[in-house]
Design a protein around this nucleic acid. Structure first.
Lengths: 155, 155
DNA sequence: CTTAAATTTGTTACATTATAACAAATGGAA
DNA sequence: TTCCATTTGTTATAATGTAACAAATTTAAG
C-alpha cells in the first residue's frame, strides 16, 4: 500500500469526484484535507473550529454540507457510534464492503476493506429478505494499543 | 419461540436484574414497558413524552438515566444509526452476539441472535489485535416489507 | 455576450439529542 | 436511629444537526 502525500490524496479525490460528475469545491476539499491530515476521526464541530482558522465565516451548515457531499461520493465515513467522521483511505476500491473497527478509548479507526467473511454476512442477511444499504459495519471495542494501557475496559 | 405477555416479560426482566444484583425500579420498569409494548425502536424524547402521560414531572435525565441502566444490564439496545432505543427480546441468552437489522425506511429492527458467521467475524477481528466490545452489530438497509413499497431506495 | 437555470454558499434561527451539577428523597445496613 | 449509598427531582446548558431563505457562483443555452 503506497502511502500518498496529502496533495496526492486530494488530487486523487478530485479525480474521483470528476469521474462521478461531481465537483470537489474549495470548502469540500478543505474539509477533506482536515480529515485526511488528522488521520483519526473528527467531530463536526471540531472540523468547524479548524475550518474557521482559514474561513472565519464558516458556520455549522458549511461543515455539514461538505460532510454530506463527501459521504455521498464515498470519500469519508460517518461513525454513528461516535457522531464523528473519518476519511476513507480506500475510496476507489470497487464494491467496497468495509468494516470499521472503532476504539472506544482513543477513538482511532481501523478500516478493513473486503474482508472474506463479509459475503457470508451479506448472504445470511439477504436470506432473511433484508437488503443491506451501505455495508459499512462499525465494531466498537479496544484497539491493540489501548488494551495494553487500559486493562479490562469494555465487557 | 414462546411469545410472552408484557407482564411476563417485565417479570422476567425483574428477575434478570435481581440476579445481577440490580434493581428494576418503577421508572426503569415503565421505560422498559414502553419499549416492549411498542415493539419498534423509540427515540428518547418520544419515550419522555409517553412517560409524561403517567409521570408529568419526568424530565430528560429521568429517561436517560433509565435508558443507561437498561443498557448496562442488557435489557435494551441503543441504535447508533437512529439515535434510538429498542428492547432486546433475548436478553437472557448467554454470550449474546447479536446483529441488529435496522430498516432505514420504517425504522423497524430485526434482531439476529447467535448467527453462525458471527464467530468468523470476531475471530478475524481478534486476529488484528482488536477486542470487540458489546458485539451488537448494526446493519442499515431495507427490510423485506419496505423493499416492496419502496423500490430502489438505498444503494 | 447575456440571460436563465442550477448549484453552491452565506446567514440566521431553531430543532434535536444528551449531560452537568446539585439538591432532595428513598432504601438498606450498622 | 443514624449513616451511607443509591435513586430521583430540578434547572440549566452543552453538543449535534437542520430549516429556510437570500446571495453568489457556475453552467449551459440562446
Amino acid at each position: 500500500m503506497a502511502t500518498l502525500t496529502l496533495p496526492d490524496q486530494l488530487n486523487a479525490a478530485q479525480r474521483w469526484c470528476v469521474t462521478r460528475g461531481e465537483k470537489l469545491t474549495d470548502i469540500r476539499r478543505d474539509v477533506l484535507s482536515l480529515l485526511l491530515s488528522h488521520g483519526h476521526s473528527m467531530k463536526a464541530y471540531d472540523i468547524l473550529s479548524e475550518l474557521q482558522q482559514s474561513r472565519p465565516t464558516a458556520a455549522p451548515p458549511t461543515v455539514y454540507r461538505a460532510l454530506d457531499f463527501l459521504l455521498q461520493v464515498g470519500l469519508i465515513h460517518r461513525l454513528d457510534s461516535l457522531n464523528a467522521f473519518v476519511a476513507c483511505p480506500e475510496f476507489a476500491l470497487p464494491h467496497h464492503h468495509g468494516v470499521l473497527l472503532v476504539c472506544e478509548n482513543c477513538h482511532g479507526v481501523t478500516e478493513i476493506a473486503d474482508a472474506p467473511w463479509m459475503s457470508h454476512l451479506t448472504d445470511a442477511v439477504a436470506a432473511l429478505g433484508f437488503t443491506p444499504g451501505h455495508q459499512e459495519l462499525e465494531i466498537k471495542g479496544l484497539c491493540s494499543a489501548c488494551q495494553k494501557t487500559n486493562p479490562g475496559a469494555p465487557a
